[in-house]
Design a binder for these strands. Structure first.
Lengths: 242, 242
DNA sequence: CGACATGTTGAACCTCATCAACCGACGTGG
DNA sequence: CCACGTCGGTTGATGAGGTTCAACATGTCG
């Protein structure tokens, strides 16, 4: 497992791959300078914890590449993934010191991170940036509530289908093979079966069984454990409970 | 079932019971005037829909009294409550026309509502108000993620205990009997068994059984179907999975 | 009074969790 | 180089926790 590394960004927020998709898109060229000054690039290897409830609120970050999972763990070890974040999502709970989740790199992750205090100062200076973050938070809230319906009311089959569908939709953000046609998709799963189970409120065995079931029903093809082909997205939509 | 009624507020946002607890607390006396001009008081009887995904985004509102449930429904009728809101919570999804949830009055509800366009205009003028709404949204996101852990990983017993605990904590906001001592609470449930089930991702039968179980174990007392006594909150916390 | 809504309780069933065996890939150390 | 342990994944057997279906109780309203 490679070690975590940190480095300053030479001078080019401007040429950053997520410049126009991350919250930075709300900033002008000039304003971007102040971000550039506080930004540090960090590489986090898969499996490593980015921040836990203990050391919460030390930093915020944009995800440049990779997938981050937000998890909650109960005293006896039961775990639930409460959020999955892809590039160019924003990471961190603003305006509080207590972070109720812990963030972990599901794949290798590149971050553009900011010290907490500096970033909040910039937020105060640029209302456009703050608005964009607000808007992003509202989207996260919508997503969380969608997932509540899944966790509370969907069957194992529907849960797994919903997950594969979500991945198909976000495939372009995983940085893997894209979905070209509207009704077809192929991608690499960024999560292990255990992680998928923790995301869906199931056991890994049930996830495994449902995947093979979906495969045998022709709803998906599995090149290997990770590589998924969705030949007909509508079929999968149907199986996911719409 | 009494009909819904609407009326303008004479002139006194200032003397409003939630003046200092709702998002309005972010406004000065003068600024409050502009809110006063667009505010309309609405009374919604229990069971009535406030807004559905169809007519979404027509208005926003503060809850003056009562309890509102945000629900999602699947094509076959399966339902999940994705949010419960009490006075002085804010109601409505800002910055989009599509509202993915429908809001329904769980009890009789008094609202202070604002036309969408007017309210968003005011938000643009008063950054403090917008900040407060942002902060409230972050709290909602935290709550949603807590609930994801419950829905995905907790047992029926833990779910019901968690719910009763949540109600005990929010009892002062239900406007019913309060919890005076730190470790004791009594309140009226604002939801039917069906609603509780839809909130917890269970069936109403399971909710009923778990309530009688908790009662027989001495964790709660039931005066009638609605009136709950929690003699020892710590015990209930323990049963809820912490 | 009957009709209806809300809630409780019982019995049977089923989905999913649990426990366990097994497989292939990978890395490491003797 | 092979033996070994580990990790991620699949598959099978078994059973418990919740759902489903149904009957019944209680309270309210016309």
């Amino acid at each position: 497992m490679p070690a975590e590394t940190t480095s300053t960004i030479p001078d080019r927020c401007e040429s950053c791959v997520i410049r126009h998709r991350a919250i930075c898109a709300a900033l002008t060229k000039d304003e971007l300078q102040s971000m550039n000054r506080i930004a540090r690039r960090r590489f986090i290897p898969a499996g490593q914890t980015i921040s836990s409830d203990a050391d919460a609120g030390v930093a915020f970050a944009n995800i440049i590449s990779g997938v981050v999972k937000l998890t909650k763990t109960m005293a006896d070890g039961r775990q639930q993934i409460v959020g999955l974040q892809f590039a160019p999502d924003f990471l961190g709970r603003t305006f509080t010191d207590s972070n109720p989740n812990s963030a972990e790199a599901a794949t290798d992750v590149e971050l553009c991170s900011f010290p907490k205090a500096d970033f909040e100062a910039i937020l105060g200076r640029y209302p456009g940036l703050k608005h964009r973050l607000f808007s992003y938070t509202l989207d996260e809230l919508d997503a969380a509530r969608d997932w509540m319906l899944l966790l509370g009311r969907k069957t194992a089959q529907e849960k797994v289908a919903s997950f594969l569908l979500l991945m198909a939709r976000r495939a372009p953000n995983i940085g893997c093979t894209h979905s070209q046609e509207l009704n077809y998709a192929t991608y690499r799963l960024p999560l292990t079966r255990t992680d998928i189970a923790d995301y869906l409120g199931l056991t890994l065995e049930t996830v495994s069984r449902q995947m093979t079931k979906l495969k045998s029903e022709g709803a998906i093809e599995l090149i290997d454990n990770r590589q998924v082909v969705v030949p007909d997205i509508e079929t999968l939509e149907h199986l996911s409970g719409y």
